[in-house]
């Protein structure tokens, strides 16, 4: 693992104009200034509740959405506003896995055609032919290569997700954006797919941006974790830091809200009141202040910067971060 980041994101922003008729009546600040790096072979988890902008971020990283401002650098090149032709060589190194295994495969194409699609649109002829490569990929993701000629409707949700993974791997990417890859699957199938992705990550040395709402899944997959709230990163750090020494009140609340099989009965959990505010009109200052039990006057006026504490790799955007208490004391008390 080198120190030179594979993906460098600075000030990434996406605003969607809200229109009524022809007039723009407002802005949805879906993503509002993100900074993060992903190094080669590293797995970064983006976690947050609905409306936090994690999916929009993922779409921007693979350039399915055009960023409003900020920059995305991939392998040293600025791809923020690159056109289709300029992106082409980079597309091969940057792929995406989708959430819905039913919508992400073209129902009119055979599995072979679906997996071969990235090769064909990029005019790549692998040694041994496309069919051999596709069958190799199917085998890699744990599917029967003989199923080459079958159609998506003949497969279960978990198998379909494997097909989507094989397609993402076809171009031998260096970075994969995985957008909630297991949340649409049955519980007993989720573990199969998480394990598969983990094996692939290790074997192929892939870097991942893993987007999920489930902190427990992220914990099993990611080395680094970024917690998002209303379009911003509120805390980013190594896995151990985030799960054992979370400093942002929101991270703590999120962790304590997850019902854990190992804890029976109502645990002494942190309760957030209310819902996530609308990104159409986010709160002033710290965006979390309306649900935060520690909020003071300064939180309403001044937006806290995402700053590392003690020169470490954990950065928290909070005026009153928890520095001392490890999470376990609070959660299991």
């Amino acid at each position: 693992m080198t120190d030179e980041p594979l993906l460098r994101v600075r000030g990434l922003t996406k605003h969607f104009p809200v229109r009524q008729g022809l007039r723009a009546t407002g802005l949805v600040r879906a993503v509002d200034g993100l900074d993060f790096d992903v190094r080669p072979g590293e797995t970064l988890g983006l976690v947050g509740e609905s409306g936090c902008g994690k999916t929009t971020t993922g779409r921007m990283l693979v350039r399915l959405l055009e960023p409003t401002s900020g920059s995305i650098e991939f392998a040293g090149r600025d791809i923020t506003h690159a056109g289709r032709r300029e992106l082409r060589p980079l597309r091969q190194e940057l792929q995406i896995i989708f959430q819905d295994p039913y919508a992400s495969l073209n129902p009119r194409h055979t599995v072979g055609r679906i997996v071969a699609m990235p090769l064909q649109v990029n005019g790549i002829k692998p040694p041994g032919g496309i069919k051999a490569r596709v069958q190799e990929l199917l085998e890699l993701v744990g599917l029967n290569p003989e199923h080459y000629n079958r159609y998506p409707h003949e497969f279960s949700g978990g198998q379909r997700q494997r097909i989507g993974i094989a397609r993402a791997l076809a171009l031998r990417p260096k970075l994969i954006v995985a957008d909630e890859p297991v949340s649409a699957l049955d519980v007993s199938i989720q573990a199969q797919v998480v394990n598969l992705l983990r094996d692939l990550q290790r074997e192929l040395g892939l870097a991942f941006v893993f987007i999920a709402h489930d902190l427990a899944v992220i914990r099993h997959f990611c080395q680094r974790v970024a917690v998002m709230y209303l379009g911003r990163i509120v805390e980013i750090g190594d896995r151990e830091d985030i799960y054992e020494r979370p400093q942002h009140p929101y991270t703590r609340a999120l962790l304590s809200a997850i019902p854990d099989v190992t804890q029976l009965g109502p645990a002494g959990r942190i309760r957030l009141t209310g819902d996530v505010p609308t990104p159409l009109d986010p709160p002033s200052g710290c965006r979390f202040r309306t649900r935060c039990w520690k909020a003071q006057d300064i939180c309403a006026t001044e937006e806290p910067a995402l700053v590392p504490r003690d020169g470490g790799r954990q950065a928290t955007a909070c005026h009153f971060p928890e520095v001392a208490a490890p999470i376990d004391e609070e959660v299991s008390s």
Binding site: S188, A191, V194, T262
Partner: peptide, 24 residues
Amino acid sequence: GLLSSVPSLHGDADADLVPIPGNP
């Protein structure tokens, strides 16, 4: 199978999950 395939906030994060093979 259900219990061992669910990722948890506790325990060894690097250990593989133990999935139930096959499909419902």
